[in-house]
Amino acid sequence: MKNTFTHFFFLILCSVFLFSCGNDDNDPQITSELEGVWSLKSMDYDGKYSAYQQGELLDEGTFTGKASEISMTFEFKGDQLVASGSFNMTMEYDLFPGVVYKVPVSGSNFTGTWEANGDKIYFQTLSGAEEAQIISQTDNELVFKMSSTMSQAAIGAENVFEMDGVYVLNK
């Protein structure tokens, strides 16, 4: 039973990486530096999860993962964001050491808005808002960290994921 819930919740977790996004004041200098087409080069993440059935805790633990076979772009134009492409998500749960789950994420196209302020980028899409912290930025590379908490419920089950992801994009 735990294995079925783990697989179900892993698929739900994948959706947070596709549709994470926030909003705040805009810094024109940072905005112009970020404008353009960026390719996702890597995405590494870790976090913890809790799985519940009818309010009873079934499982909790930690996970790590990364994206591979990446063909994903993000276009920052004005205040608009257009993302498209695909990648594979891999994840390893502490519950199943040595077992790596691999899920293809294709057709991950979405649009939204974005703003930059200081060392923050705020994204907004139909699925919600997210805030990213810029770790480093050059003319050709952008590295940011985004923390997310997501809760999904279905058929009396609920899964809560708290994760930190580091994204590397190149122009």
Score class of each variant (00 low, 15 high):
residue 26 N to F: 13
residue 26 N to P: 06
residue 27 D to S: 15
residue 28 P to E: 08
residue 28 P to I: 03
residue 28 P to G: 08
residue 31 T to V: 07
residue 31 T to F: 04
residue 34 L to S: 01
residue 34 L to C: 05
residue 35 E to A: 09
residue 36 G to A: 08
residue 37 V to K: 14
residue 38 W to D: 01
residue 38 W to P: 00
residue 38 W to V: 00
residue 39 S to L: 12
residue 39 S to Y: 03
residue 39 S to T: 11
residue 39 S to H: 12
residue 40 L to E: 07
residue 42 S to M: 13
residue 42 S to K: 13
residue 42 S to D: 13
residue 43 M to H: 08
residue 44 D to R: 07
residue 44 D to I: 07
residue 44 D to L: 10
residue 45 Y to T: 03
residue 46 D to V: 01
residue 46 D to T: 04
residue 47 G to S: 10
residue 48 K to H: 14
residue 49 Y to W: 09
residue 49 Y to T: 07
residue 51 A to K: 04
residue 51 A to L: 14
residue 51 A to S: 11
residue 51 A to V: 14
residue 52 Y to V: 09
residue 54 Q to N: 15
residue 54 Q to C: 06
residue 55 G to A: 08
residue 56 E to P: 01
residue 56 E to Q: 15
residue 56 E to D: 13
residue 57 L to P: 08
residue 57 L to M: 10
residue 58 L to Y: 03
residue 58 L to N: 06
residue 59 D to Q: 07
residue 59 D to S: 09
residue 59 D to W: 00
residue 61 G to K: 04
residue 62 T to Q: 11
residue 63 F to P: 00
residue 63 F to E: 00
residue 64 T to P: 01
residue 64 T to I: 06
residue 65 G to T: 03
residue 65 G to F: 00
residue 66 K to P: 00
residue 66 K to G: 01
residue 67 A to F: 02
residue 69 E to V: 11
residue 71 S to W: 09
residue 73 T to K: 13
residue 74 F to T: 12
residue 75 E to D: 10
residue 76 F to H: 04
residue 76 F to M: 07
residue 77 K to I: 09
residue 78 G to V: 05
residue 78 G to K: 02
residue 78 G to N: 03
residue 78 G to L: 00
residue 79 D to P: 06
residue 79 D to C: 11
residue 80 Q to V: 10
residue 82 V to F: 15
residue 83 A to T: 04
residue 84 S to T: 06
residue 84 S to I: 03
residue 86 S to M: 12
residue 87 F to H: 04
residue 87 F to Q: 01
residue 90 T to I: 01
residue 91 M to I: 02
residue 92 E to G: 01
residue 92 E to C: 02
residue 93 Y to Q: 02
residue 94 D to N: 15
residue 94 D to S: 10
residue 95 L to K: 15
residue 96 F to S: 05
residue 96 F to M: 07
residue 96 F to R: 05
residue 98 G to P: 08
residue 98 G to Y: 03
residue 98 G to S: 02
residue 99 V to F: 08
residue 99 V to A: 05
residue 99 V to S: 05
residue 103 V to D: 03
residue 103 V to W: 02
residue 104 P to D: 07
residue 104 P to V: 13
residue 107 G to Y: 04
residue 107 G to M: 02
residue 108 S to C: 12
residue 108 S to A: 15
residue 109 N to E: 10
residue 109 N to Q: 10
residue 110 F to K: 11
residue 111 T to Y: 05
residue 111 T to A: 06
residue 112 G to V: 08
residue 112 G to P: 08
residue 113 T to Y: 11
residue 115 E to H: 15
residue 118 G to P: 05
residue 118 G to I: 06
residue 119 D to N: 15
residue 120 K to Q: 14
residue 121 I to Q: 03
residue 121 I to M: 10
residue 122 Y to E: 12
residue 123 F to I: 14
residue 123 F to C: 11
residue 123 F to R: 06
residue 124 Q to D: 12
residue 124 Q to G: 08
residue 125 T to L: 05
residue 126 L to G: 14
residue 127 S to T: 11
residue 129 A to K: 05
residue 129 A to M: 07
